Simulated scan of single mutants.
Amino acid sequence: MPSHILYKEDVARDIVGFWNSNDQAEIKAIAENLSIRKFKKNEIIYHERQKPTRMLYLVSGKIKIVKEGGVGRTPIVNAIKEKHFFGFRAFFADDCYATSAMAFEDCTVASIPIATAALLIANNNNITNFFAKQLALLLGNSGDRIVSLTQKHIRGRLADTILILKDNYGTMADEKTINISMSRDDLASMSNMSTSNAIRTLSAFAQEGLVEIVGKRIKVLDGEKLEDISEKG
């Protein structure tokens, strides 16, 4: 069997594993309809105001969810980690995307047509329950981020962003350095502050021994203190 078919079956097995299924018919249906595409860093995966036509799943790499159309910097409203679905709110709402998805770094995205996804969902309540939980988590996390970005002080916002990046992308072999190379502009955008404020606040965190700056990477030295700063805002 060709390697690309085997790869699609592996991705399909990963997908059905989210709703604790090993149904061979589901795996076959997904694998046969699966498209896999690679995106370069900063390449757009979908634009806001587009109508979704496929269910999207991040196989590998990192994706940022951004809000386009504003004045000045494009704010980053979420960061997606690999082996997770994204953009599915619009799918279930039968609505256009409210945000855009862009590659944080080179990434691989799998997708299946809406018709295939709808048929699978109609035939398996476990899939419905899985996405209902994901939508509830998405709503809760979105609410927390709105509070963080609009009500917290600069230190709280930056601490929150660093902790989200660590939680989403994990750490490198030293178990401290966050596994993403991130520009100061992106860090500022994700924290709803100017680049100069992000640089200044990150430098203050470094002077206080909370983080270490390693080029475009951040090493977390005192996660508990960062959590305290995030919670106090």
Results as ranks from 00 to 15, higher is better:
121 I>F: 07
124 N>M: 02
165 L>M: 10
121 I>S: 06
168 N>W: 03
155 R>W: 06
169 Y>T: 01
126 N>L: 13
139 L>N: 13
166 K>I: 01
158 L>H: 11
121 I>Y: 03
169 Y>N: 01
165 L>Q: 03
152 K>G: 05
120 L>I: 06
129 N>S: 14
160 D>P: 02
122 A>I: 05
164 I>R: 15
114 I>Y: 04
126 N>H: 11
156 G>V: 02
154 I>L: 14
140 G>C: 03
165 L>F: 09
121 I>R: 04
137 L>N: 14
136 A>F: 10
162 I>H: 00
158 L>N: 13
150 T>M: 14
137 L>H: 09
171 T>W: 02
136 A>K: 11
155 R>D: 13
124 N>L: 02
133 K>A: 13
134 Q>W: 04
133 K>T: 11
143 G>D: 09
140 G>Y: 04
127 I>K: 04
131 F>R: 00
161 T>G: 04
114 I>E: 06
160 D>H: 15
158 L>Q: 10
126 N>K: 14
150 T>S: 15
129 N>R: 15
121 I>L: 13
131 F>K: 00
132 A>T: 07
153 H>N: 15
163 L>S: 02
118 A>M: 08
161 T>W: 00
152 K>T: 08
169 Y>P: 00
126 N>W: 06
139 L>F: 11
114 I>F: 03
161 T>Q: 07
141 N>M: 12
140 G>N: 10
159 A>M: 10
144 D>V: 13
117 A>P: 00
168 N>C: 09
128 T>I: 12
145 R>D: 05
154 I>C: 11
129 N>K: 13
150 T>R: 13
165 L>T: 03
144 D>G: 15
141 N>D: 14
119 L>M: 11
138 L>G: 08
123 N>G: 14
151 Q>E: 10
145 R>A: 04
154 I>S: 12
160 D>M: 07
153 H>E: 15
158 L>V: 15
114 I>P: 00
165 L>Y: 06
154 I>N: 08
124 N>H: 06
149 L>T: 06
161 T>F: 06
168 N>Y: 10
134 Q>M: 15
162 I>C: 00
138 L>Y: 10
141 N>L: 11
139 L>I: 12
